[in-house]
């Protein structure tokens, strides 16, 4: 039993450890460690395509996570106050956003946006006074839109769980003491749900930062970091990819530990997928 569990943990961590180890390999070989070196990190990060992809990923992840945290929290509060029927509709839509595979979300968003832009762009061109009317294309906004869908659902889920755990007594006391509804929200509710909002933000950021398949469909000419990693894997396995992979790994590790830390103090449960 114990041996099996130890083996399972080894199984989970050994491959990752190997990727990290060989990112510091001086040679090119995947089965022979020939010496310690950070040469591959230097190579990777002097590559302008990679730096651009990293920058794109950070912008997309940050914006979609901020929007998801704000709108998701607002939705979570609203859902608590809704009629039973409206709540069921929202629950169903958010559940769909989580359950529908990323491939399908990517395709559906691509199809819809290309169709909509095909209608909107000629309209803009029609009313545009100057010579070169702006064209809206796929890019940051389409990836943010598609990521925001899933991450908003995640934030709403986490914040609602926290709100459900709040006692009504403080809110009622605040009302009895003549606080305005907004005052009650700012001074009583917000401080209590803030950790779950930040945790939701971090999970949203992690998801967006790690997502490959949705961005693959809707990013247009923009390349995100996972898309860059995917493309370089197809070109061939080199220690340079290990260096990039290690960087991605460390980044998401920090984010997830942050989220875990924020969600722990009150519920004794770990972060659950």
């Amino acid at each position: 039993m114990r041996a099996f569990v130890v083996a399972a943990y080894l199984f989970l961590y050994a491959p990752i450890a190997l990727v990290v180890l060989f990112s510091f390999n001086a040679g090119r070989n995947a089965s022979e460690f020939t010496g310690f070196s950070v040469e591959w990190y230097g190579k990777a990060f002097s590559n302008t395509f990679l730096v651009q992809a990293l920058q794109n990923s950070l912008i997309i992840a940050f914006v979609s996570a901020v929007l998801a945290a704000i709108f998701g929290t607002m939705a979570a509060i609203a859902i608590e106050r809704m009629s039973e029927r409206a709540r069921l509709v929202f629950d169903g839509l958010f559940a769909a956003a989580i359950v529908v595979p990323g491939v399908v979300i990517g395709i559906a968003t691509l199809v819809a946006l290309v169709t909509m832009l095909g209608l909107i762009n000629p309209l803009i061109a029609g009313v545009w006074p100057g010579e070169n009317p702006p064209r809206i294309g796929l890019g940051y906004f389409s990836v943010i839109a598609a990521h925001g869908l899933f991450t908003m659902a995640v934030v709403t889920m986490i914040v609602r769980a926290r709100i459900a755990g709040l006692g009504r007594d403080m809110v009622e006391a605040s009302g009895d003491l003549y606080a305005t509804p907004f005052g009650t929200f700012r001074q009583i509710v917000l401080p209590q749900i803030l950790p779950s909002i930040v945790a939701g933000f971090l999970l949203a950021f992690t998801f967006s930062f790690d997502d490959f398949i949705v961005a693959f469909f809707v990013s247009g000419s923009k390349t995100t970091l996972p898309m860059y990693v995917f493309a370089s894997i197809r070109r061939g396995v080199t220690p340079e990819i290990n260096a990039v992979a290690t960087t991605v790994l460390v980044a998401s590790l920090f984010l997830i530990l942050g989220a875990h830390f924020l969600m722990r103090p009150r519920s004794n449960k770990p972060v659950e997928g």
Partner: peptide, 28 residues
Amino acid sequence: VALIVVPFWTSLLVRTYAWMYILGSRGL
């Protein structure tokens, strides 16, 4: 338990790449 959860939230692409690396002709 935390050690089980953490890998799930790190890039599936990177974790799959790890096996590509191990099973590829220069690995195992």
